[in-house]
């Protein structure tokens, strides 16, 4: 006896976010240099500044919107049309990172607004298969929990 269980979708790239699970919000994963202490996203194989070893670093899940746009032409990777992109100043780690914006929140985007990370199936990967992508949603929206 076997249940038709759908394989979970793979992440768009390995090691850039923690997979959401019950009761735990996803976080962005970057790197921190053990020698000079600089943070990076995504995690590089070695520190580009001092060539020191870099270990995985939890960059948290919150930040503020530094700038954004809504792309209205044919989207790549089977992303929704239109889709939003922004640079987000993370609250922890001092980094400004590129991120997708929540598909339902494009009308609400404003520079300076508080954002929180979410992860869901969004578009396809390099192989054309559905995959999980991280995106940012307004922080005042109730988080969608994995179940």
């Amino acid at each position: 006896m076997h249940a038709e269980s759908k394989q979970p979708s793979p992440p768009v790239a390995p090691g850039v976010f923690s997979t959401p699970s019950r009761g735990r919000d996803p976080v962005l994963l970057g790197g921190r240099c053990l020698e000079c202490g600089r943070n990076f996203f995504p995690r590089p194989p070695r520190c580009p500044h001092c060539l020191g070893p870099v270990k995985e670093k939890d960059l948290g899940s919150t930040g503020r919107l530094y700038s954004y746009t809504v792309v209205r032409v044919r989207p790549p990777w089977g992303l929704p049309k239109p889709y939003g992109l922004g640079y987000v100043d993370l609250d922890h780690g001092g980094l400004r990172v590129l991120g997708l914006m929540a598909p339902g929140a494009l009308q609400d985007l404003q520079i300076g607004m508080k954002l929180r990370l979410a992860v869901a199936e969004l578009g396809n990967n390099l192989q054309g298969e559905p995959c999980l992508r991280p995106y940012f949603e307004p922080a005042d929206v109730k988080p969608a929990r994995g179940d």
Binding site: P76, L85, L126, P134
Partner: peptide, 9 residues
């Protein structure tokens, strides 16, 4: 590149 895969054009 990750940026490209996150939709950067």
């Amino acid at each position: 590149e990750l940026d490209t895969q996150l939709g950067l054009v």
